[in-house]
């Protein structure tokens, strides 16, 4: 079996492929450990073990490219029949901060990636300041000298 710390690493790596956000972007949410613990606490142990084994195989396949990895994810992780739908739950967790419809924590709500994907911020947090809404979001405005 793979040990816990390498599982966290695998979790981060596969999360990047699942969400379309880079590992650094995911780390910057500060939620990595919380989410890893969330899936451990709420998923059948066997599913977890086989899932990470599969993830490890996908990520360490010889001659892998992003395209081959994505293809493998689509075939081996995404179907609902695989690991009780764990991959989809992981995506929803990162995007919404919810585990199967329930908010994990205040921080998980605030760090939901869907807000960033939509060039905005979670309502009630990370407020952008007076009048910001009158202009396009800073994330799409080119910074000028």
């Amino acid at each position: 079996m793979i040990n816990a710390s390498s599982n966290v690493k695998l979790f981060l790596e596969i999360s990047a492929f699942l969400t379309g956000f880079s590992e650094t972007e995911l780390k910057a949410t500060g939620m990595l450990e919380t989410y890893y613990n969330t899936i451990l606490a709420n998923t059948d142990g066997n599913d977890i073990d086989y899932f990470f084994q599969n993830v490890s195989d996908i990520l360490s396949a010889p001659e892998r490219t992003d395209a081959t990895i994505e293809q493998a994810i689509a075939m081996q992780l995404i179907p609902d029949s695989c690991y009780s739908g764990l991959a989809k739950n992981i995506i929803a967790l990162w995007y919404t901060g919810n585990w199967v419809g329930t908010v994990v924590s205040a921080a998980s709500y605030i760090q939901g990636l869907m807000w960033e994907a939509g060039h905005t911020h979670p309502p009630g947090a990370k407020q952008p300041g007076y009048g910001s809404w009158a202009n396009p979001p800073l994330s799409i405005v080119k910074q000028q000298n």
């Binding site: 995506i91 929803a92 994907a117």
Partner: peptide, 26 residues
């Protein structure tokens, strides 16, 4: 946008394609 995320995930979307779709819709 939570419901939009769920719709996209259910349809099998993930990764960069999912992110782009969320950007497009939201």
């Amino acid at each position: 946008p939570g419901s939009d995320v769920n719709t996209a995930i259910v349809s099998g979307m993930f990764g960069k394609k999912l992110r782009a779709e969320m950007e497009r819709v939201i």
